[in-house]
Simulated scan of single mutants.
Amino acid sequence: MAVKELNVKEQHYADTREEAESIVEEAKDDVYLTSFKISEKHNKLGTYFLVDLAFSYDTPKEFMESKPAKKPAPVEEPPKGQLEYSVNQDGTVSVNQDEEDEE
């Protein structure tokens, strides 16, 4: 069974609020984006922004329902008719013509 990521979280760094908002706008193009958060942080070098993005690709229910249904085993049809044949000395086979014409 293949491993499939259902939930992905990303964190991006931005120097300005405009950069952070542009990252969010880009992420909004993805239909799987479920949440985003822009956090303003401070340290001795100044202010910066962290952008947290969360994506949910398929819920387990959708993933399980998307599997193809099992096909039932094909029903074998009984042979329609049997032909009389004979094998000659040289290995060739001949079929009785009367039986073949009835079909």
Rank of each mutant, 00 (worst) to 15 (best):
D30M: 01
L33R: 09
T92M: 00
T92V: 05
T47W: 13
P79N: 12
E26L: 10
E40C: 13
S56V: 04
K67F: 07
F55S: 07
V8A: 01
D15L: 12
K71V: 13
L50Q: 10
H12T: 01
E77I: 01
E5M: 09
E77D: 12
V51W: 03
K44M: 13
P68N: 07
P79Y: 14
V8D: 08
E10S: 04
Q82A: 14
Y13C: 00
I23S: 07
S22V: 08
V31H: 12
A54I: 05
D15I: 06
E26R: 14
T16F: 11
L53V: 03
A73E: 15
V31N: 04
K44G: 03
V75Q: 13
L53E: 05
P72R: 13
L6R: 07
F63T: 01
Q89F: 04
A20I: 03
K37H: 04
P78D: 13
S66T: 05
T59G: 09
A54C: 04
Y32L: 04
M1W: 02
D52N: 13
D29A: 11
T47Q: 14
L50I: 08
A54M: 01
E102C: 02
L83W: 07
A2S: 13
E21I: 00
E5Q: 03
S56P: 00
A69P: 00
S56M: 07
L50M: 09
A20C: 03
V31A: 12
E100N: 05
D98T: 08
L50C: 04
E21G: 04
E103T: 06
E25P: 02
V95K: 06
D90R: 03
S66E: 10
F63E: 10
K70S: 14
E40I: 05
G46H: 14
F55A: 02
A2F: 08
M1A: 11
S39H: 10
A69L: 02
Y85C: 11
P74W: 01
I23T: 10
Y57L: 05
F36I: 03
Y13M: 10
N88W: 01
E102D: 05
T34N: 06
A73L: 15
K28R: 13
T47R: 14
G91C: 05
K28F: 05
D58A: 06
A69E: 11
V95E: 02
Q97M: 03
L45W: 12
K61T: 08
E99M: 06
A54V: 08
D101R: 12
F55D: 00
D101K: 12
F49C: 12
P60W: 00
S22P: 00
G91W: 03
M64V: 05
A2V: 07
A2M: 10
D58C: 02
F63W: 00
F55W: 02
V51H: 09
F36P: 06
A20F: 02
E65I: 01
K80H: 11
E100I: 14
E103D: 09
E25L: 10
T47I: 15
Q82C: 03
K71Y: 06
L33M: 05
S35K: 12
L45K: 15
Q89D: 12
N43I: 08
K4A: 10
T59C: 04
P72A: 09
G46N: 12
V51I: 08
